[in-house]
Design a protein around this nucleic acid. Structure first.
Lengths: 155, 155
DNA sequence: GATATTGCGGATCTTTTTAGTCCGAGATAG
DNA sequence: CTATCTCGGACTAAAAAGATCCGCAATATC
């Protein structure tokens, strides 16, 4: 899992603390967390494509949440960056070699692939259970204003 | 996640169907699933190191389960191949850059890292809930004997 | 209307991981 | 005791992913 996953989780949390209608540019966010600006910008695009963020170009442009923070889950962000595919891929080796099963016996999906898919679903459910609003609720009440203040002064 | 994960899940399931005390060599298993023998042997070693399999060298040697099938979970196998580390790694970027939090504010772990760890734990729990014995229980009753028969004739 | 600023996408380079091969150490059977 | 069969770990290519850079389109400001 790339390091940019952490970057975007934090950036989305930061954007969720801005006043509605306010945007933050990629350069601002990069400076806020001391990250390589070019690469961060590229990853932010993935979140725009996924529909979690919205972007406006031109001067005073930047990124903002595309939906209320309560409707953006950690899963939305993680899958936008890392892809939604399961890491385990069943290649049906049970149908190959000396021990090959007949096609008829393979009508139902492989038990092992099924269990791996179950685990992946458990992982997804866990991440989908937390929204950005939930994350903000755990921060001290003074956090949003400080974030806005520190963000405003950046380039 | 490497393709060898699938290989070893299936190989372990196969070994679980052998009579106690019987071993299967890497060459036999490779032939059984039509896999590159040398590379499979390398991956089987990881399972030996993790303690899930036991190996005996010399003529008539090979691999066998190191414990009863009911005490080997899918998680044991997956983590032996793919490593036990969580794919998400918190690098504490909240302490860097313009928005850096004070060390005192970082006494408790980052909320995002916590949620990601929770998801990983959910994934592990799901895999740990299934043992090789559970997998065998889903197969038709005739499966183990056929597996032994087809395995016996191999090189 | 010109200019500067910002996001967007493609092409490129580097690094890491994966896939695969090979030869040596050790143990068993005869 | 010897020959053969097995695992064991080191070594080498290949592919994928990470990370970076540059030019293009769009928009608000002056």
């Amino acid at each position: 899992m790339p390091v940019s996953t952490e970057w975007l989780l934090h950036c989305a949390t930061t954007l969720a603390q801005l006043d509605p209608g306010t945007t933050a540019s990629a350069a601002q966010l990069a400076q806020y967390y001391d990250l390589p600006a070019a690469y961060l910008a590229k990853q932010l695009q993935a979140l725009v494509r996924s529909g979690a963020l919205a972007a406006t170009t031109g001067p005073r442009g930047g990124f903002r949440l595309a939906r209320p923070a309560s409707e953006i889950t950690l899963l939305d962000i993680v899958e936008a960056v890392d892809g939604a595919a399961s890491p385990y891929e069943c290649r049906e080796i049970r149908q190959q070699g000396r021990g090959a099963l007949s096609p008829e016996e393979c009508r139902n999906t492989c038990v092992l692939a099924e269990k791996m898919a179950d685990a992946h679903e458990a992982w997804r459910r866990s991440l989908a259970a937390t929204s950005l609003a939930d994350v903000l609720a755990t921060l001290p009440p003074s956090a949003p204003e400080r974030t806005r203040r520190r963000m405003a002064g950046a380039t």
